[in-house]
């Protein structure tokens, strides 16, 4: 049976891109001078990457059919993305507050923007993924 892509593909790909962006921004954020001393929390990176892997599996399998087990993957991906976003935000909330109020200067701009941007990207990835969960990746022609 031939299949063609459906709205779910668009949303899932978008979510995947946002998730990758979030993970990259997190990594970049850990290299900024302001947050470098806090080190890399591998849990955040692992959770975000796991979400991306799950989404990829969902996409690949979904383009070929709709096996029941595949329906679990967007749910799992959403949970992982939310977890990554919350863990990232939790690790950075004090620092962001300080940077916004009185520790902000030219050299810390990158630290602030990558932190906020990364959190937003992961939250957006989760929201888009939720939306995408209401649609299949592909449908029969």
């Amino acid at each position: 049976m031939k299949r063609k892509s459906s709205a779910g593909l668009f949303f899932t790909v978008l979510s995947l891109i946002l998730a990758v962006a979030g993970a990259v921004l997190y990594y970049l954020n850990t290299t900024t001078a302001y947050f470098a001393s806090q080190g890399l929390n591998t849990t955040i990176l692992i959770v975000a990457c796991a979400a991306v892997v799950v989404q990829l599996i969902y996409l690949i399998v979904g383009m070929k059919g709709t096996p029941a087990v595949n329906d679990l993957f967007p749910i799992i991906a959403t949970a992982l993305l939310i977890a990554a976003a919350v863990l990232f935000a939790s690790a950075r909330v004090n620092g962001i507050a300080a940077l916004i109020t009185f520790e902000g200067n030219e050299t810390t701009t990158m630290a602030l923007y990558t932190a906020i941007g990364g959190i937003i990207a992961l939250v957006a990835a989760a929201l888009v993924n939720i939306l995408g969960s209401f649609f299949d990746v592909s449908k029969e022609v």
Partner: peptide, 18 residues
């Protein structure tokens, strides 16, 4: 219906994890 339940499950899972 399946898609709808899946979407709802995704939504409620997000809130649960949160």
């Amino acid at each position: 219906a399946k898609r709808a339940w899946r979407g709802l499950a995704s939504l409620t899972a997000a809130v649960c994890v949160l």
